[in-house]
């Protein structure tokens, strides 16, 4: 049965105080007191791995998963707002998702695995801001917004301003993300998503998402540069797509890593960028 203390000491994460919060008010006052030495734990599907590998060693971990007020999804005329503890699987099973955001419905199965989506939150994935994860890419592509709370109230910033680099965001140490918003698109749109990964559910080597309406076309690329990159086109550009994609691919600050070279990633953007865009456009013709 129970083993010796010495064995229990061999723990993966470095020691930290754990605070199980019951309200947003408690969280923001704790963040203010701890001045940058605290981490927010919601679903933990990114943070727990970082803690286990000791890539982060906070003095305080604030568990927000029991704050009931943050476990919501609401729909207004302008946007769909998702609370900080709303899981990816809850979004996947949200009855209106297919009708309002078919692109999110088609992307979610690629976000981690069945077991990680059961616990991982939509907001958490955005906060982690991994260059190759799908949800930050969609938030940028769809012109989403991030709601940040602190003791002085809330502020709302665009996804573009929120994602500042690899694993870094504009979230200050005294505030945390309480919700994200996906704007509802007025016009009917076509969409497409293609991902290259070693295994289904793994981080993307390159992820491409496109939306197209009658007068504007957008391609979002994840996994290549430090943050999602967006290419905006007009329907007229479709006749010379390969040039536009080539310029776009060169403009990306592509990275080499163990999985693929920068050159390979740029080539994927050129080749699959074209098929992703055409697929999205064909849906509205």
């Amino acid at each position: 049965m129970a083993k010796k203390d010495s064995e229990l000491k061999k723990m993966k994460p470095a020691p930290f105080d754990l605070c199980v919060a019951q309200s947003v008010k408690e969280v923001v006052s704790l963040l203010k007191q701890n001045k940058g030495d605290a981490k927010i734990l919601a679903g933990g599907q990114s943070l727990m791995a970082m803690l286990n590998m000791r890539l982060v060693k906070p003095n305080l971990v604030i568990d927000i998963s029991r704050i009931k007020d943050l476990d919501y999804i609401k729909i207004t005329k302008e946007f769909v707002e998702i609370g900080a503890t709303f899981t990816q699987s809850k979004l996947e099973n949200w009855p209106k998702l297919q009708e309002i955001f078919p692109i999110i419905a088609s992307v979610l199965p690629h976000v981690g695995h069945f077991q990680t989506r059961n616990r991982g939150t939509v907001c958490g994935s955005v906060c982690h801001s991994d260059p190759s994860s799908e949800l930050p890419l969609l938030l940028a592509l769809l012109n989403g917004e991030v709601v940040l709370s602190s003791t002085s109230g809330t502020r709302i910033i665009s996804a573009k301003d929120f994602q500042t680099g690899m694993l870094s965001t504009a979230c200050e140490t005294h505030e945390f993300v309480t919700a994200i918003r996906f704007p509802i698109m007025a016009k009917k749109y076509g969409h497409a998503f293609i991902e290259i990964a070693r295994r289904h559910g793994d981080y993307a080597i390159v992820a491409l998402a496109a939306i197209a309406t009658k007068d504007s076309i957008k391609l979002g690329v994840g996994g290549v540069a430090d943050i999602p990159s967006i290419l905006e086109l007009k329907p007229g550009d479709l006749s010379n797509l390969s040039d536009a994609l080539n310029t776009f691919a060169w403009s990306l600050d592509a990275n080499d890593d163990i999985h693929a070279s920068a050159k390979y990633r740029r080539e994927i953007v050129r080749r699959l960028g074209e098929s992703t865009l055409r697929k999205a456009c064909n849906e509205i013709i």
Binding site: L18, Q45, N52, D63, R119
Partner: peptide, 15 residues
Amino acid sequence: LDGEAIRACLCLAIQ
């Protein structure tokens, strides 16, 4: 955990 399949290595005991 409460009926849902999750990773036990990405969850704290106290949770």
